[in-house]
Simulated assay, not measured.
Amino acid sequence: MTNEFEPFEIREPAVQTIPFVYNSPHSGRCYPSAFLDESRLDDHSIRRSEDHYVDELFSAAPSFGAPLLVAHFPRAYVDVNREPYELDPRMFSDPLPPYANSNSARVAGGLGTIPRIVAENMEIYEGRMPLSSAMERIETCYKPYHACLRRLIARTHARFGLGVLIDCHSMPGNIRVAGSGIKPDFIVGDRYGTSASAELSRAALQFLEELGFVAVRNKPYAGGFITEHYGRPARDLHALQIEVNRSLYIDEATLEKRPDFDMLAGSLAIFMGQMADFVADYFGDQALAAE
């Protein structure tokens, strides 16, 4: 797979000047030819799980002095927002290793590390695959991606004394908040207060609302493995998941960008600047650029 394209890239500023790392793990749209040959889905349907163009929506991050890590491999191929071995035994022709987690709710829903379905419960494969295929994806995509993300976060923390990871995603346009009927434009996830400080979450919600969006916290998306794994507020490591409603910027049937795509990207650039200013003010000198 890596002979066809690089699995990911870091879009770096000339110098990192703010304690932020932006991450787009699900916007990859380079599909390995062997994977497409294995799939029962057409080239359009298999894209249903993408966080379409989220890397472009948050593309201003380097201009504010923060790196942006972008996956090129698609989520349908391997999902880095899962534990490394959340595997469904029904998908493979070989027995799973004893360390695999085959009992998670995500595996049961068909959305493990190697997904069984794309959105709308569309099965990806005709039959079972060899376990070696899954292990190759984990070794060549999943593990290097997380190693890179860990380095970026560790470098940021060492330089500034704190780190803020913004994990960037999109959600279907039909999402509603249960019991309220609210259709959110954005969901800010902090794993119910465990992955980031409450002040940081409240600031993100406030800035999005001031920009004219409907923003909610944690429901129905509180954050996945990345947010949970890297957010350690007690150690000055904060992680927020930002979900953008896809209907704001693409036609969900054709997956084409809407005319106001650039306007939304501009609003998110304002949001990124506001978040950087808030962290500098709230956390004080440790959030200022190191000499």
Rank of each mutant, 00 (worst) to 15 (best):
M1V: 15
T2F: 12
P7F: 13
F8Q: 15
R11E: 14
P19N: 00
N23D: 04
S24W: 05
H26N: 13
R29L: 14
C30Y: 13
P32F: 13
P32K: 14
P32M: 15
S33I: 15
S33E: 14
F35W: 15
L41A: 10
H44S: 10
S45M: 10
I46L: 07
S49I: 03
D51M: 09
D55I: 13
D55M: 12
E56D: 15
L57V: 11
F58K: 05
S59D: 14
S59Q: 15
S59T: 14
G65C: 01
G65D: 01
G65N: 01
A66V: 00
V70T: 04
H72F: 14
H72W: 10
H72V: 14
F73E: 03
F73Q: 04
A76C: 11
Y77P: 06
Y77F: 13
V78Q: 03
R82G: 08
E86S: 12
L87K: 06
D88E: 13
P89C: 14
P89V: 11
D94K: 13
N101A: 05
A105Y: 12
V107H: 02
V107W: 02
G112K: 02
T113M: 01
T113Y: 04
I114F: 02
I114V: 05
R116L: 09
E120S: 15
E123F: 11
Y125R: 07
G127Y: 14
A134T: 03
R137I: 04
I138F: 05
Y145R: 01
C148T: 08
R151Q: 06
T156P: 07
G161I: 09
G163D: 06
L165D: 01
C168R: 00
H169N: 07
M171F: 06
P172Y: 04
N174D: 10
V177S: 00
G179K: 06
G179Y: 07
G179Q: 10
S180Y: 04
S180D: 02
G181A: 04
I182P: 05
I187S: 00
V188Y: 00
D190I: 02
R191A: 04
Y192C: 09
A196M: 07
A196C: 09
S197H: 10
A203V: 02
A204S: 07
A204N: 00
A204K: 00
F213W: 01
A215W: 00
V216P: 00
N218P: 03
N218G: 01
N218S: 02
Y221S: 04
G223S: 08
F225C: 08
G231V: 02
G231W: 03
R232W: 12
R232M: 12
R235H: 15
H238Q: 09
L240Q: 03
N245G: 08
N245M: 11
N245F: 03
L248G: 07
D251Q: 08
E252Q: 09
A253G: 15
T254S: 13
L255V: 09
L255Q: 05
E256S: 14
E256K: 10
R258W: 05
F261E: 00
D262A: 07
D262R: 13
M263V: 04
S267L: 06
S267N: 10
L268T: 05
L268Y: 00
M272K: 04
Q274C: 15
M275P: 02
M275D: 03
D277N: 13
D281S: 11
D285N: 15
A287E: 03
L288Y: 11
L288G: 11
A289N: 08
A289W: 12
